[in-house]
Amino acid sequence: MLEDLELLRTSNAEMISLDSTTKFYAGFEAISPASIRIKKGERVVFLGPTGSGKTTLLLLISGQLSPTSGRVTLDGIDLKSIQSGRNLSRLVGMIPQQFDLVPNLSVLHNVLAGRLGEWGFFRALFSLIFPQESLWATNALDRVGLAGLANSRGGNLSGGEQQRVAIARLLVQDPAVILADEPVASLDPTRGEEILKLLLAIAGAEKTLIASMHSVSLARSYFNRVIGVRNGSLHFDLPTEMVTNTMLDELYSLEGLRNARQGTESSSSPNNSSIRDVPMEPYKN
């Protein structure tokens, strides 16, 4: 990951910034005022206990949630001012934790949906009968290792395959910022590493990658900046090598942790399937 640090020094473009951003759900403070600056090409991971607000932060950055106060800016543009979904989709794309393919459509159409931001209505309609620009889709499916599944029905795929299709769709959409919510949560460690390597390869040097994770060891191996989130506020924000086990202990400690079920945050977020209260692997080694 040292090569990434080199890139950080040379590219100064600030890609994402949150300025005193908060999010309230009916009086419940899901996110306390948070200010973050992320540069283009960084690899950032949000770590923290369940219900701490990691998903909410991702949703704020992706524009799917709007902040109660404060500002979210992508590439210098305030997200609130973006009216067209099209422009937003060029900036940011997200791979959510829950499966979100259209089950009745083929994998090909699900992946080509990444192009809907560029297509007009009639082209989209036409493509359902005669797939347009299918080269985008077949290349993307190749890259995620699902070549040959183009004509399968979306709903017939396994969970891991559906996730890869979602990644292929993101490839086709080609946004500048890639967000991933718990990308390895339901995968064994080997598959988890494969997916992370894939995400890193896709992000390359030009795109910014932000993920929320449970697995501390994988997070430390693949990301160069760690932001600890606890009870809706930022606990620490450091380059990976400066994060100590003590900090992680504090981050995940059960004392003083607000109960995820009492807060409305996890029930309002679309991804409330993870019910783990402690990190998956022991990080004390």
């Binding site: 989709s89 997200m94 979100d100 949906a113 990444g114 931001g117 297509w119």
Partner: peptide
Amino acid sequence: PPLRALRASGASEWQ
């Protein structure tokens, strides 16, 4: 969720 994903990909309500 699939509708949210389509919207996030930039689809219009018609799409």
